[in-house]
Design a protein around this nucleic acid. Structure first.
Ligand SMILES: NC(=O)c1ccc[n+]([C@@H]2O[C@H](COP(=O)([O-])OP(=O)(O)OC[C@H]3O[C@@H](n4cnc5c(N)ncnc54)[C@H](O)[C@@H]3O)[C@@H](O)[C@H]2O)c1
Ligand SMILES: NC(=O)c1ccc[n+]([C@@H]2O[C@H](COP(=O)([O-])OP(=O)(O)OC[C@H]3O[C@@H](n4cnc5c(N)ncnc54)[C@H](O)[C@@H]3O)[C@@H](O)[C@H]2O)c1
Lengths: 208, 208
DNA sequence: TAAACATTGTTATTTAATTAACAGTGAAAT
DNA sequence: ATTTCACTGTTAATTAAATAACAATGTTTA
């Protein structure tokens, strides 16, 4: 298995979501082109991704939904799951917490952190919010390996520093500041304004 | 100029954000490697992107911050700006609206839409929320060309249909359902769970 | 001023990702 | 049964993106 392309990992996650839907609707098998249509990509891409993870079917009646879900799970999930924390439980942090809560069993938001005394030491959106000063301790105690950053942009760098000191292994950064992390920490960044500006640019392009 | 790589567009948006920061801090010039460090990429990449948009400096004291902001603006922005709408003013929709409101002059959230009568015909997070039934009319009246989808996943497809009928030109889809749109509409999709699962996968990888 | 240096712009190379091509094979049709 | 058909798996080709290489040139230092 070793080295799967980064893009493939993203698509596997999406396939699984769709497959879980199929399962819920009683579909037991799905063709590569069905999966492709549902994701706006080509059937070849789907087959190639699935080839890469080593699953294959002898039948010509499509992939076995259940089996494929399991195979993808073996790639993406860890045996015991991973814990994540939200840092900065403001508007976005609360939306994410409320959304994730109870959605994935293998990946859960175990704690949130904030500096605002109005928010700390309370349960917000179903998860306990701790003062940032306790971050190191809680991250270790609760074996949290992923940090989701939703603090104000100007605090992002400092918070990241603390997170890494506390032994965090992966960061999902939603603040509009890009971060520098040591290469043993995986960093994924997403900026909504960039996305929106991209849409705007291509809308403009198409009009010309 | 014609065809800029998609990735470059994304980075230009990010450079501009950083450049605006520089400007605010009184920096008038910035080196390619400064910009690179701030974005976790290489200086070559920065220079190449900037080459592609046709800006260059004769000085060897870095790029002129103000000038570069303008050049990027000419690429990304339209003359009169574009209007966007949020569809589904729930947790995520509200967070986005509150965040964007008053941030970009050239790109603004002009209206929001929802089905919930508790929410419609009120101002939420600073923007008027209309019932979904009026979407066609409002989109035309207010010249809205971008739709940001934050409705429940099961409603995404139907809402998209309506959006396209109303003449929307670009969609930013935050629901966890991927959409099919005609090729004259630009579609950008982002799924937080996929992002988080990607982080989880690479965290797991690194541990092995 | 001359030499050393730093920085840019651009072409060439490499790497990553996608798409095309097609052989192989089970299922359905005749 | 045999032919046709629909799908899959995989290698090869193409395209897109990132990186390296380096000439050109303004800046700083001796
Ligand atoms: N809201 C959105 O839709 C949206 C979109 C794109 C980007 N963002 C980014 O996400 C981040 C948060 O946005 P928001 O709208 O939720 O802002 P917000 O102000 O609602 O929330 C920020 C939260 O962080 C807390 N905080 C401040 N300093 C902190 C620190 N040092 N440590 C821990 N917590 C701290 C605040 O108390 C607050 O609860 C910002 O960086 C913003 O740029 C938000
Ligand atoms: N909250 C998050 O952080 C988050 C993260 C990832 C993805 N999402 C996705 O974003 C979407 C919204 O999430 P949320 O947490 O804000 O949910 P939410 O339930 O808080 O908000 C959904 C809103 O959409 C409205 N709505 C329902 N049907 C509608 C329709 N047909 N037309 C217009 N409006 C309608 C509801 O009244 C509600 O206000 C979901 O698809 C979810 O999968 C959310």
């Amino acid at each position: 298995m070793s080295k799967l392309p980064e893009k493939t990992i993203g698509r596997l996650s999406e396939y699984r979501r769709t497959l879980l839907n199929c399962l819920a609707n009683g579909k037991t098998h799905v063709f590569s082109h069905d999966l492709a249509n549902l994701h706006n990509i080509t059937a070849v891409q789907v087959r190639r991704d699935i080839m890469l993870i080593g699953y294959s079917t002898t039948l010509k009646k499509g992939y076995d939904v259940k089996a494929l879900i399991d195979v993808i799970g073996n790639i993406i999930d860890t045996k015991d799951g991973l814990n994540a924390a939200i840092i900065g439980i403001g508007n976005l942090g609360r939306a994410i917490t409320a959304y994730f809560n109870g959605k994935r069993t293998r990946l859960k938001i175990a704690a949130t952190f904030d500096t605002d005394p109005e928010k700390t030491n309370r349960v917000i959106s179903g998860v306990k919010c701790y003062p940032i000063s306790e971050m190191g301790r809680i991250i270790k105690e609760q074996d949290i390996s992923i940090g989701i950053l939703t603090v104000p942009p100007e605090d992002a760098a400092a918070v990241t520093e603390t997170l890494i000191m506390a032994g965090i292994k992966g960061i999902l950064n939603y603040t509009s500041t890009s971060l520098n992390v040591s290469p043993n920490v995986y960093l994924e960044e997403y900026d909504m304004i960039t996305s929106l500006e991209k849409v705007a640019y291509f809308v403009k392009e198409k009009n010309e």
